[in-house]
Design a protein around this nucleic acid. Structure first.
Lengths: 200, 200
DNA sequence: ATGTTTCCACCTAGGTGAAAACTT
DNA sequence: AAGTTTTCACCTAGGTGGAAACAT
């Protein structure tokens, strides 16, 4: 939960599918980035409560660099190792939630999903895409900003982030256990899941 | 083009794919309505110019009854005949464009498409759906409303409608030429179009 | 050697009209 | 008889990881 210093109003942002995120986090989450953009899996989904039901809020996502390193996956030890200093990421990139702005009341009644965001390694990302650096570590943040009338000077802003959603951006999976977990849990991933076991 | 009485500002709304709409209109357009909702084909797509690039506008669609009749398709003459008086339609139904509100500048740069609207005969339409009466004649309207600050009293509103987009709502196609035209032009419709001619 | 791109078969998701079943 | 609902094969649209080709 997050506090707004000026008003002492409390809002609460809860991450959905924590078990899924934790399962990936335990292995060291990798997110594919491609030139044309790739969705995140798992997707960030949250429940937000405590907002004023009658006010409108903008909801957005951005990414922070978790550290200043570049990583390398060492196969024989199955571990990520630091491999030099990271390169700078394009600044000021923000993904606006497609249904935003929304009423506080509506927000509270829905799971707010960022499943449509796409990650890319293209230096000039398209709309709805965020450009990241491969082999570096990132963590998504959620921004909630009250849409004020023109005359009111103070604006309410909240920023929330969940450590278990951090990941290393990759252009191809490194850890095979991550690959296996993606196939097992992402309905779009082909492969030999329970329902396909009858195949060769 | 449409005039705003108070400010004499002129905006222009142009229907896209006029040739397609005219082809259907010549035969007497029919739109399928189902319990779960069916998209319109053709979809209403417009170009809007003349808005203030720095103001925000809400864009919406609703439907007016073209007349007070209920119709019946007479097969042996291949014509629609009046078959009594129409039944009342649910009032106050509006489809808000999913990207709305939008900046005037953005609106001018895009084709504004209402392809995702769904028509239904369900008495309690779901979100994004509009409930109509079967065998009655309707015409879509486009609403453009400036999103004002709270303090400004006057609000700008525009309403535009194109006669060639009128249609009769049906639960099954009546005129076979309409069916043929839908198959020929709607990419989602299966059937034996140019690209499929090699099939039986 | 290591990381990236391209292409592809395989999947989910969902928009079609046809036909049969159903309703009145 | 006339209109509606259900089901279905057939499509478009697009999200997957794998493998091979490519780049550095």
């Amino acid at each position: 939960s997050v506090y707004d210093g000026s008003r002492k109003q409390e809002i609460c942002v809860e991450l959905c599918h924590c078990d899924l995120w934790n399962a990936f986090h335990r292995l060291g989450t990798e997110m594919i980035i491609t030139k044309t953009g790739r969705r995140m899996f798992p997707a960030v989904r949250v429940r937000i409560s405590g907002l004023d039901p009658h006010c409108r809020y903008r909801i957005a996502m951005d990414f922070i660099s978790v550290d200043k390193y570049k990583y390398r996956y060492v196969y024989h030890s199955s571990k990520w190792m630091v491999a030099g200093s990271g390169e700078p990421v394009i600044q000021g990139q923000t993904y606006h939630h497609p249904d935003s702005p929304m009423d506080g009341g509506y927000i509270a009644s829905q799971v707010i999903s960022f499943e449509r965001i796409k990650l890319t390694n293209h230096p000039r990302p398209r709309a709805g895409q965020i450009s990241l650096m491969s082999m570096q570590k990132f963590q998504p943040r959620i921004h909630i900003e009250k849409v004020e009338d023109a005359q009111s000077a103070v604006s309410e802003r909240y920023v929330v982030s969940f450590p278990q959603t951090s990941f290393i951006a990759v252009t191809a999976y490194q850890n095979q256990e991550i690959t296996r977990l993606k196939i097992a849990r992402n309905p779009f991933a082909k492969g030999f899941r329970e329902s396909n076991k009858h195949r060769t």
